[in-house]
Amino acid sequence: MLKILLIDRCYFTRSGLEIWLNQAGLFSTPVVVTGLNNLMLAKEHAMQWQPDLVIADLYGFSGDLHHVQQLSSLLTACSEHSKLILLQSGHNAEMESYCQQFPVAARLAKSSSLEQLARMIDTALLARPVYAEPQNAAPLLTRQEEKVLSLWMEGTNNHSIAHRLGINGKTVYTYKRNIRMKLGMCNRFTPFLSLPEGVG
């Protein structure tokens, strides 16, 4: 099974690429695609899930960064087990210079055609090392934890989360604690380091 992680602030790019990557016949093996718009979650996902390929547009996050060195943990996590393709939706000389320190399989303008992206993906996947297939794979978060995290990141309070999911308020607190532990969050504000689309 081929695992692909998409990191992009733009909802339309993420969902469009996800649909395109999942279309029948694009790959000779089954594909699992995960799209994220949060750098902290992307880093944790890259470390835990170890995707075969990461496709990222980091330019959309440049306003969230105090310094480009904040990308180091994400770029390290992506390059340890994965091939990394950087999509360039803008120009940031400092970011481009910093990213050159890490093994990047390809850089491609975001306005490039899907045919060009497909060629880059093929080249990157052919160059990746072959790992033994794990016997069983466990997701990082449970489905219920993912629902709680999504509502949490929207700014929904514990009472509203409990009401929407039909659970007790204390259970929401427990889910949040488990999420923080699994994702290595240092405090309860960590999920808001990168706000969802439309916020701000």
Rank of each mutant, 00 (worst) to 15 (best):
1 M>P: 11
2 L>P: 13
2 L>Y: 10
2 L>D: 13
5 L>I: 03
10 C>K: 01
12 F>Y: 12
12 F>G: 09
13 T>K: 07
14 R>G: 06
16 G>I: 02
18 E>T: 14
18 E>V: 08
21 L>C: 06
22 N>M: 13
22 N>L: 15
24 A>G: 05
27 F>R: 11
28 S>C: 08
28 S>W: 14
29 T>I: 11
30 P>I: 04
30 P>F: 14
30 P>H: 12
30 P>Y: 10
33 V>Q: 12
33 V>K: 10
34 T>L: 14
37 N>Q: 07
38 N>Y: 04
38 N>E: 01
39 L>R: 01
42 A>S: 13
44 E>G: 07
44 E>C: 13
44 E>N: 14
46 A>P: 01
46 A>E: 00
47 M>E: 11
48 Q>H: 08
51 P>I: 06
52 D>S: 12
53 L>P: 00
56 A>Y: 03
56 A>F: 04
58 L>N: 02
59 Y>V: 01
60 G>M: 00
61 F>T: 00
61 F>E: 00
62 S>G: 01
65 L>V: 05
67 H>N: 15
69 Q>T: 14
71 L>H: 05
75 L>R: 04
77 A>R: 06
78 C>R: 01
79 S>V: 06
80 E>F: 12
80 E>H: 09
80 E>Y: 09
82 S>A: 11
82 S>G: 13
84 L>R: 03
85 I>P: 06
86 L>E: 08
86 L>R: 07
86 L>A: 04
87 L>M: 11
88 Q>W: 02
94 E>F: 00
96 E>R: 08
97 S>G: 09
99 C>Y: 03
99 C>D: 02
99 C>Q: 01
102 F>N: 10
104 V>L: 01
104 V>P: 03
105 A>G: 12
107 R>C: 03
109 A>T: 02
109 A>C: 01
112 S>M: 04
112 S>G: 15
113 S>M: 05
117 L>C: 11
118 A>R: 10
118 A>P: 07
121 I>L: 10
127 A>L: 11
127 A>R: 13
129 P>S: 10
132 A>W: 08
132 A>N: 14
133 E>V: 15
136 N>R: 11
136 N>L: 15
136 N>T: 11
137 A>S: 15
138 A>V: 14
139 P>C: 09
139 P>Q: 08
142 T>V: 08
142 T>R: 04
143 R>K: 01
143 R>P: 02
144 Q>E: 07
144 Q>W: 15
146 E>K: 11
147 K>A: 09
149 L>T: 00
149 L>Q: 07
150 S>D: 13
150 S>P: 04
151 L>H: 02
152 W>S: 03
152 W>N: 05
152 W>L: 08
154 E>Y: 04
154 E>N: 06
155 G>H: 02
156 T>I: 14
157 N>T: 12
159 H>R: 05
160 S>E: 13
160 S>F: 05
161 I>R: 02
165 L>N: 00
173 Y>A: 12
173 Y>M: 07
174 T>S: 15
177 R>W: 09
177 R>E: 15
177 R>G: 11
177 R>H: 15
178 N>E: 09
178 N>M: 07
179 I>A: 04
179 I>M: 04
180 R>M: 12
181 M>L: 12
182 K>Y: 13
182 K>N: 08
184 G>Q: 10
185 M>K: 14
185 M>R: 01
186 C>Q: 15
188 R>H: 10
189 F>G: 03
193 L>A: 07
194 S>C: 13
195 L>M: 13
196 P>R: 07
196 P>H: 12
198 G>N: 02
199 V>R: 09
